[in-house]
């Protein structure tokens, strides 16, 4: 990772883009090989449309309307067909695709992400097939961005990687050290940080239990976040 950049935590686009950008980096470090086919098709469609417009622009500027009139209608037609295909590709075929790749000996993986307007929750759909199988499986995940962003806007890779490795078997197989059990994933730390009148007793109870058991797993995550399930209970 390069030097962490600070983002505006209230900008959903910043949250999503920073997180999306981290996915290929992380998987690259896990020796996944990224497949760029989908991006290449998109770029090919887009650039061929742009080239047609560029050529028409040049000939129109060089020879004028009367000379280029015959070619203008077909050029406009082809341009908008390519533009339509490009739009279709982006919205219906890629549909939020941020990563497609294959890990050595762990299987194929395809990740699409999305956010809903004004809701700071990261939606991730992972389609994967384990080695030796052809039947792809799909997992749909949701997590609040607070889980891997500090309150002052820095991305914290560790909890994010733990979340991915724990939930998606293909990533878990490639990165076993980041797989954490239910009790881990920073939830314990978070409960301490969020101490209030309502849950103080619960926290003390948990700390007591944790101290007696040694509870080593929660140390990795220094950042608050995680599901609110426990607190409600």
């Amino acid at each position: 990772m390069t030097a962490p950049t600070k983002i505006a935590v209230h900008s959903l686009a910043d949250l999503k883009n920073t997180t999306d950008d981290h996915l290929p980096q992380y998987l690259h470090n896990l020796k996944f090989r990224q497949i760029h086919r989908s991006t290449d098709v998109r770029l090919a469609l887009g650039y061929s449309a742009v080239v047609i417009a560029g050529v028409l622009f040049y000939f129109d500027w060089k020879f004028g309307w009367d000379a280029t009139k015959v070619y203008t209608a077909p050029a406009v037609g082809v341009y908008f067909i390519l533009n339509g295909l490009f739009t279709w590709w982006v919205w219906w075929v890629e549909a939020g695709l941020v990563y497609e790749g294959e890990g050595k000996g762990v299987g194929k993986l395809r990740l699409t992400t999305s956010t809903q307007k004004h809701i700071p929750v990261y939606n991730l759909v992972a389609t994967f097939s384990l080695p030796g199988t052809t039947l792809p499986q799909t997992i749909t995940l949701r997590a609040p961005f607070t889980r891997w962003f500090t309150s002052d806007g820095y991305f914290a890779p560790k909890p994010f990687q733990q979340w991915l490795a724990s939930e998606i078997p293909v990533i878990g197989a490639a990165d076993p050290t980041n797989v954490v059990e239910e009790i881990g994933r920073g939830s314990e730390t978070e409960r301490v940080l969020n101490a209030s009148g309502n849950n103080a007793i619960d926290i003390l109870e948990q700390l007591k239990k944790g101290a007696s058991a040694g509870a080593p797993q929660a140390t990795g995550a220094g950042v608050g976040g995680g599901s609110g399930r426990r607190r409600k209970a």
Binding site: G46, Y47, A49, D60, V76, F80
Partner: peptide
Amino acid sequence: RQLATQILNFALVLSTAFMLWKGLSV
């Protein structure tokens, strides 16, 4: 590829405007 995508977005804005104009011309 990311850079190519950003440049493409800009080029598409310009070329779409130009082609709409040309479409209207036709």
